[in-house]
Design a protein around this nucleic acid. Sequence first.
DNA 1: GAATTCATGTAACTTGTTACATGATTTA
DNA 2: TAAATCATGTAACAAGTTACATGAATTC
Lengths: 183, 183
Amino acid sequence: MTLRYIILGLLNYMSMTGYDLKVFMDRSINFFWSAELSQIYRELSKLEGLGYVNYRIEPQEGRPDKKIYSISQEGNIAFIEWLRDFPDTLSTPSRNEFLVRIFFSSKLKKEELILHFEDYIRELTKELKIYEPIDKKLSEKLIGKDCEDDIFYHKLTVKRGLSFARSEISWAKECIEELKKIL
Amino acid sequence: MTLRYIILGLLNYMSMTGYDLKVFMDRSINFFWSAELSQIYRELSKLEGLGYVNYRIEPQEGRPDKKIYSISQEGNIAFIEWLRDFPDTLSTPSRNEFLVRIFFSSKLKKEELILHFEDYIRELTKELKIYEPIDKKLSEKLIGKDCEDDIFYHKLTVKRGLSFARSEISWAKECIEELKKIL
DNA sequence: GAATTCATGTAACTTGTTACATGATTTA
DNA sequence: TAAATCATGTAACAAGTTACATGAATTC
C-alpha cells in the first residue's frame, strides 16, 4: 500500500507521467523506498480504477503519447486519511540482508568479514557525501520560509539519513575492532 | 533468496520442523528478518526439490506427524557459497514507511506529528529494553570461549540493534525539538 | 557505434501476507 | 470458556523483480 500513497503524495506536488514519477522517486524518496517502473504503471491503473487519479493524453511524435496523471479529490481524501492514521505498531517489518549475513558469519574467515565491513563503511560514506549537500541546499531554501513548506519535512528525512549513516559507520568500525582483537 | 539461506543457516545449527524454524526465527533473526509459516513451508518444499534438505517423519498421536528437516551436503555448500559472495552493492533496497510518512507530513498538524514521533521513541525504547539483557546474556556466554562461536556474531547484530535504536531515538528527539520551535 | 533518455507498457516470476482448515492439549 | 500451543498445510492475493518490446533523439 505504501507505493500507492507515495504516488498520490507526489501527484499532490504536480501532475506527472508514470515515467516522471519514477524519476522523481529515484531522486528523493529512493533513500527509504524504491519501486520499478512496471510497478508504478500497475499501481497507476489501479488508482485510476479507484477514481483516485485521472489522466489526460499529450500526443507526441516519434514517441508514445504522454499520459499525464493528476490526483482527484477522492484521491486526496484517501491520501490525507492514510497520513493521519499513522500505524502504532511500526508496520513494515524491517529486513536487512547485511545483518542476516553477519548473524551467520562464523563460517567466514575473519579477514574476509573485515573486508565486508569495510565495504559497508565505504557505501555509507558515499551516502553521507550525497546527503550533506542536500541538507545544505534544503537549509538555504528554508531560510525565511515557515514550516508549512514540504522542504521542512524533507529535511527531517535527510537528517535521519545522516544520523543513520553515521551510526552504522561507527558500529561497523567497532565490529572491525572486535574482529581484529581475536584475529 | 534470503529466507532460503536463513533456513539453511538455522538447519546448520540443528535439524528442525518448519514450525520450529518459525519459532526460532521469531526469537532471533526476527529483529532484521521475518517470515510467515506459510512462506517457510513453501521454501522448505523448494529446498527439498533442490536436494538441499532432507526430512524424516516422526509420528505423533492426535497431532500431525513431525517432518524434521536436516540440511544436506549440497545444501551446506550452497549456504557457504551464499555467505562468501557478499553483494558489494548493499543489495536489498531499504524500505521505511515511517520515513515516507514524515516526508509527506506537511499535510499534518504539528501537534499530531509530534505524537507520532513520541510513539516512535516509545517503540524504540521498548526495543532497547529487549536488546540490553540479550546483550548481557551473550556476553556472559562468550567468556572464555573463542570467536568461532556463533554467539560472537550474534552479539554483533545485537550491538547494532542497540546502536540503531539509540540513534533513531536521538534523531526523533531532535525532530520534536525542531517542530516545537515553530509550533 | 554504443549507451542513455524518453515513454509507453506486458508477461512471467518470486516473495511476502492473510485467511482458512484440522484437532488434541494446555493455560489463563 | 476462550485462547494459546503444537504441527501440518492450501489458496488467494498483493507487492516487488526481471526481462522483453518499441523507436526516435541525443550524448559519449
